Amino acid sequence: MKLYVYDHCPFCVRAAMVAGYKDVDLQIVPLLNDDEASCHQLIGKKMVPILEWGDQAMGESLDIAKKLDEIGSGVKLMRAPTDYQSITAVISSVQRSISCLLFPRNIQAGLPEFATPSARDYFQRNKEPMIEQSFATAMADTALHKQRVETMLASLPHLSLPSENGDTLGWDDVMIYPTLRNLTLVQDLQIPQQVRDYLQEIAALTRTELYYAIAI
């Protein structure tokens, strides 16, 4: 069984965190960001994550996460104990600033999906229209975007820790964690302690990596 991913992709993180938590025996396969052919060969369109087993393959992150939850060991993921939609709405309220912080840093961080110049160029060419500015401008405006994101982080409701729920993972975590995890790529971003605690516990529970060590 193989899980094709981009390391920076929050949808891929959803699948990877369930695989790690449920101890699913699979191979994580990073794809280059401009590798359209592999995606089309597997599921007929450019999309990750992709789960492949035998002669079958599937896309859509939550469908993959649910399948991994079914086949993995241990108890199934909990239903959301918190109103995760209100939390994700707060995060999404500054999505443009999040993207302006992350997109240019993604291609500088040495991630496997950006191992070639063509993969980096492909990403930049596709993402600059989404943020309506160049990566250089986004980086130059780092202070502005950090301020907006830090204000958002400080306003987040309490995040329920795994340790408060018997060291278990919930579907709300699958929705909340990936974007917060990716923000650890931003150097000196002021992340409140309750959010840091949440990130550390989820990372340990799911065997996923935070970006503090390579923050830019």
Rank of each mutant, 00 (worst) to 15 (best):
L102D: 06
H40P: 08
Y177F: 15
R196V: 07
Y212N: 04
S160R: 09
I64Q: 01
T151D: 03
P49M: 05
D35R: 05
C100A: 06
S61A: 14
K67V: 14
N126G: 13
Q194D: 14
L156Y: 05
L31M: 15
T208V: 15
L31D: 12
Q56N: 15
I87W: 03
T184Y: 00
Q194I: 00
P117T: 13
R14G: 08
C12Y: 06
M130S: 11
Y4F: 14
R125N: 11
V94R: 06
K127P: 01
R196G: 01
A203W: 04
A89S: 08
C12M: 10
L153M: 06
I71N: 00
D34Q: 10
A37Q: 14
Y84Q: 02
A80H: 06
S99Y: 12
D173H: 09
L210G: 01
S134Q: 14
D141H: 07
R14C: 06
L42S: 12
D188N: 15
P112H: 11
V24L: 08
Y4H: 14
V29N: 01
Q124W: 11
L153H: 10
S99C: 15
G170R: 00
T168R: 15
D34M: 07
Y211I: 01
P157I: 06
D7E: 15
Y177R: 06
E36S: 09
P112T: 11
G44C: 07
S92V: 01
I176Y: 01
D173C: 03
S38F: 07
G166Q: 13
D34E: 10
D55R: 13
H8Q: 10
S160P: 00
P192S: 08
G44H: 09
S163D: 02
G74F: 04
A213H: 08
T179Q: 06
K127V: 04
K146I: 06
L62P: 05
L199V: 03
R125G: 13
I87G: 04
I87L: 03
